[in-house]
Structures are given as C-alpha cells and as structure tokens.
Design a protein around this nucleic acid. Structure first.
Length: 283
DNA sequence: AGTGTATCCTGCAGGC
DNA sequence: TGCCTGCAGGATACAC
C-alpha cells in the first residue's frame, strides 16, 4: 500500500509527536510481523527513548537513544501506525480521527500513558530493532532517494542503462531506487511517455530526464496532498491521503487518457498491474 | 542478470 | 444469502 509519499506524510506527522517518548513496555499481538524472537525484541526496545522519526525508502526509521539502536517499521500493504492518547499544545488529539485499530499487531506503551500501535490487516508489514551497524548495512543496500538533491537525471539514466528489465520493474526495485511502488512507477512512466514494458536500457537520456522530472513531480505533488489512499492508508491523524483523484493512469483502466483521450490500458508485468496510455507511451 | 512463481495474510468486489 | 474467483499500495526466496 504505502509508497514514499504515504510514508513521508506519516513520518512528518509522527515526528511532531514521538521524539522524547520513552518505550516502557511492548505488547506483541502478532509475532509474525517481527523479524526476531519476541523476547529479544521487547528487551531491545524497553526503556529506550525515541529520539527522531525519519524515512528511508518505504521504511519508518526511529533512532532510539540517539542512534544506539533503530526501530524500523515497514508498512507492507496495509500497515499503519496510530499514536494514541497524545495531545497537541492546541488541545487537538492526533489519532483521534483514526478508526479503532481492528488489527493491532504491536502496541508500544510509552511514558505518560501514551501509546503507539502498529496495526496491519494483512501483516505483510514488519517491525524490527536493529543495531546501529545492522541499520547501516541495510541502509547501504537501498538505492538513492529520488527526491534528494544528489539524485540527478544523469544518475537515473546511468542506472537504467545497466539493466534490460522492464522499466516498471526497474522502478520497483528498492536496490536501484528507493521508495517507488506500483502506483508511482506507473505514474512516472506515463509522465515520461515511456511504455512500462520498455527495457530499461532502451530509455534515452532525454526520456530519462523526463522520467526524473515526472517522478519527482508526482512524488512531490503526492506528498503535498498527503499521499494516496486506495483503501487502508491513514496518516498520523487517521486521515486518508487525497492524491487519488489526481492519479493520471493508475487504477484508470478504460478511462480516457488525461492527455489524448485514448482509453488507459492495464497489463500485468511480473504478476503486478501496470497502467499506461497506448498512444502517449508507445512501445 | 533476468523472469515466473510462490509465499506470507485478510478483506472486498463482482459474478453466478 | 452464499460461494467462488480475482484482486490489492510490499518484499523475499526459489527454480530456471
């Protein structure tokens, strides 16, 4: 479910609330979301203080005790993090709009009676504590952040030409570029006028520039609108993202292309849907 | 280095 | 109403 813009929106909300919170104890309701034994997990987070809330690719990264360890959450398809019993200085209560977590998997009990709940219907999400070194290694395996200043069109092109895999698949590979998922991969291909099945190494420098632009534009705009909610995604306030109506091809099979009016098509690449306009994105 | 397939899970929509 | 199939924002492991 959640891709870079959704995770970024959630992280921005949580960053206003969680730093300084101390984890008193943890209840693990569904241990299959952990990547380590429950006992060890609970021991490693107990009595630690969350010192920041950051994003890397689609991961929510919370340094504990200024980076002695890292609590890393991946939302998978349906995961969500709900802050509970927090209050802002203006009296509003974040998370109060959230539907009660029907599928809690891990509940962190924080100081002051507050809590953070990881809720996940399908439980494809993961929650884990990593040592500083383990997180560094994990981080190093992830590709560049598409919105960072260091990521240029030339970098994108240089990465693409090293692979013959379909462009859409290339964009989904977190080792090549971080944070792009199925929605924004289709959107980026559309904005660049590149057919999603085109071999990555067939993309010209000009097309790569268009894709670099399109990718950054669509991710940036999606963040401004709080991300895309198809079904489950909620931000830290429990509100859905509003970018869905602005998607140009994803989920619009049969509907007219926003640019030329031709019906948008859906194809399956590597078992996952891709949407494109056959006129604007020729093979 | 690729792809296809399967796996982890649950819920929902649509067809009959 | 029930039953069935297919589909869903992710990530990983496997055989080929």
């Amino acid at each position: 479910m959640p891709e870079l813009p959704e995770v970024e929106t959630l992280v921005r909300g949580l960053h206003l609330l969680l730093p300084g919170c101390r984890i008193e104890r943890t209840r693990v309701i569904h241990e299959d979301v952990l990547r380590q034994p429950v006992r060890r997990f609970r021991n490693e987070v107990r009595h630690r203080t969350i010192t920041a809330v950051e994003r890397r690719a689609k991961n929510i990264v919370m340094p504990l005790d200024d980076g002695e360890a890292f609590l890393v959450v991946n939302l998978g398809m349906t995961g969500a993090l709900f802050p509970q019993r927090f209050e802002r200085s203006n009296g509003s209560a974040p998370g109060s709009l959230a539907r009660r977590p029907t599928h809690p998997a891990v509940r962190f009990h924080l100081d002051g009676g507050r809590a953070l709940v990881f809720h996940d219907v399908r439980r494809f999400g993961t929650v884990e504590v990593l040592s500083a070194e383990a997180w560094r290694v994990r981080d190093a395996r992830l590709g560049p952040e598409p919105l960072s200043d260091e990521f240029g069109a030339a970098d994108l092109h240089a990465g693409l030409v090293r692979s013959r895999s379909p462009v859409r698949n290339w964009l989904l590979d977190q080792r090549r570029i971080a944070g792009v998922g199925n929605i924004y991969a289709s959107e980026a291909c559309f904005r660049a006028g590149v057919h999603p099945e085109r071999p990555a190494d067939s993309v010209t420098p000009g097309e790569a520039a268009g894709m670099h632009r399109g990718l950054r534009d669509v991710l940036g705009a999606a963040i401004e609108h709080g991300g895309t909610t198809l079904q489950d995604y909620r931000n830290a306030d429990g509100r859905p993202g509003l970018f869905g109506t602005l998607l140009q091809v994803y989920g619009r099979e049969g509907e007219p292309c926003v640019s030329c009016g031709s019906p948008v098509e859906r194809i399956v690449i590597a078992n996952r849907s891709a949407f494109f306009c056959p006129e604007c994105q020729p093979r």
